[in-house]
Design a binder for these strands. Structure first.
Lengths: 351, 351
DNA sequence: ATGAAAGCGCTAACAC
DNA sequence: GTGTTAGCGCTTTCAT
């Protein structure tokens, strides 16, 4: 049978003090505050007994008493998507250092699911939320914020709000990846994107337009918008584009690029000999076969750490002044054959 | 400000009964037991008030009182590995239906990390554990079991124990995937595996040996064992093998196959024209480029559901009789060009 | 500098 | 059938 758990009461008895003092010592230790209130020797003794008995605070009791769960919820589009999986792991690692536990969920770009997940998480009890908004979930997200639950948006923003968020400078990324293609000599460049109304997607499209326009190729601009649940349509888009003499594609997301590559293959074309492509983030397939002429490298780790730090700050601040912070991360363009270009620009931080 | 949480006390007041009765009704409702102890009308009234007030039980209080956290821990090798990520999601989904919360962690094949994760999870409070054992973690795992924390092993077993587990019939998988290659006309087939002492890897190697031997190719058997943190060595292994006229490789894991493919490419060979390969599970790259001649499809979903069900059963059983169950899943061989072979054999379940 | 005591919300043994 | 009550382990005033 499992030996009974050690409680502060046991420590109090063993050290010959009251449980209140034990509690106080355990907590001041962590915070490093109130360093003089307790007799140094008594504190030492208590700490010694605690570690001798291998004391582990009971989370449920602490939560019940304090109302703080030390747990946060993270809702992404799809946790099995590498971009989000990697971010999730960063968040998890960093949360661990702050002694927070993380609950994960996937919305699958479905506002109903997202709303349900928020509900589930709130019932389980969370101190804050990091969420990748999906189309149609704006209302649900704003409601959370209104109820004063700390929240940080990731990867995408919600229009007409000033919630804290961590996003990429997608406009710039779109423009630069387009220019990379242009530098390689392509002029007939089209974009394949989603029909979803998402801030990041929209900005990437805008960036593509800017990149083309600045090179005097505004006339060639063409953006194909697919429904994310009808990816097979990409087949005919690509076939048609090829017939019209399109030389290169900019894919708005990695998933889209993978579907595009599959479609290109089904049509018997080779990459990059017959059709060139550029996309957002790389993946194993692209790495091995040197598929993409260039891609946007998103600073995955910073997405995670910045979002978590923002959230923790928001959770642990005492005062009610809701300062929202927007962090805009800088993209990096990686080109395949010529040595990579690494823009060292600093990021814009709006507070 | 957030409105105060509604508690059973509020319901009791509103319904004009005691909090004990409210508690009792809330719990019997779920279990469906003791259906006659409470007056039907009273129960109805309580339930009505509860839903009117949108009552949500306080988890911390429940946990503090009952000692049950309704949380389980899942430790895999690497949650960013698709095989484990997919299983994790199945476990999560199914756990949700049982009203359990899941905590995830990755050992990175490091016994120290695994042990630490077990410790962390135990401190957070979990009712049970699903773990993919890694080399050198046997002692730590057995200790958990000895302390009566319900545990289920996944994907791999621990030698000389009879802990509950859900694994693939790896010997059979190894033999059949080898035979698939032989049917395609290859005879000079070698295996690339890990040097780690893992039950699943060992059995796959054994299967390969059996497959070769049964085809009278025992003389060609050769297994290359790599350290999982020295994957670059695969380059020279493959180069050397090619020089010796090897026609095909069986890769012991998907990761290994991906490294192998990269190495083959670096050497300028084509797949499957120059070198053929077979592996465990597919992936995007293999799917798109039709790389593997054949692969073993593991029943991902069943790994997850069986493991979770086993664990829940073990957690919720009252009696102390520790019956351990071993579930052996049947592999499916998927061949690329000829229509797939789908063995319909039933699984062996040892209780 | 330290202790006493009041609960946080819930469950379960027992009383009526 | 329903109510009373004693905590689960901890934090946090308020005394001393």
């Amino acid at each position: 049978m499992r030996t009974r758990k050690v409680t502060i009461k046991d420590i109090a008895t063993e050290a010959g003090v009251s449980i209140a003092l034990v509690s106080f010592v355990m907590n001041s230790k962590a915070d490093g505050k109130d360093p003089h209130r307790v007799n140094k020797e008594t504190a030492q003794r208590i700490l010694a007994v605690a570690s001798k008995l291998n004391y582990q605070p009971n989370n449920a009791a602490r939560t019940l008493r304090s109302g703080k769960t030390h747990t946060i919820g993270v809702i992404v589009s799809d946790i099995s998507n590498k971009f989000f999986a990697d971010i999730a792991r960063c968040i998890e690692d960093r949360a661990y250092k702050h002694k927070y536990t993380v609950l994960f969920g996937s919305s699958d770009e479905n506002p109903g699911k997202l709303e349900n997940l928020i509900e589930v998480f709130r019932n389980k009890g969370i101190d804050g939320l990091i969420v990748v908004p999906c189309e149609g979930a704006d209302a649900a997200i704003c409601r959370v914020a209104q109820e004063n639950l700390p929240i940080v948006l990731l990867d995408r923003q919600v229009a007409n709000t000033n919630l804290s968020s961590v996003v990429l400078d997608n406009r710039r990324a779109g423009a630069e990846i387009t220019k990379a293609l242009i530098r390689r000599g392509f002029t007939r460049i089209e974009m394949i994107s989603y029909s979803m109304k998402l801030s990041n997607i929209g900005e990437r499209e805008e960036g593509y337009r800017i990149g083309m326009a600045e090179a005097g190729l505004g006339g060639n601009v063409r953006i194909h918008q697919l429904r994310h649940d009808k990816l097979r349509k990409i087949d005919e888009i690509i076939r048609d584009a090829r017939q019209r003499g399109v030389e290169a594609f900019v894919f708005a997301t990695n998933t889209l690029a993978l579907s595009g590559l599959t479609a290109i293959f089904r049509n018997g074309w080779r990459v990059p000999e017959d059709v060139a492509m550029a996309c957002f983030d790389s993946n194993e397939t692209f790495d091995i076969y040197k598929t993409a002429v260039a891609y946007v490298r998103q600073p995955i780790e910073r997405f995670g750490t910045e979002a978590l730090d923002l959230l923790i700050k928001s959770i642990e601040q005492q005062d009610e002044t809701t300062t929202s912070t927007r962090i805009v991360l800088t993209p990096e363009i990686v080109e395949s054959a010529p040595p990579a270009t690494r823009p060292e620009a600093k990021e814009a931080i709006w507070e």
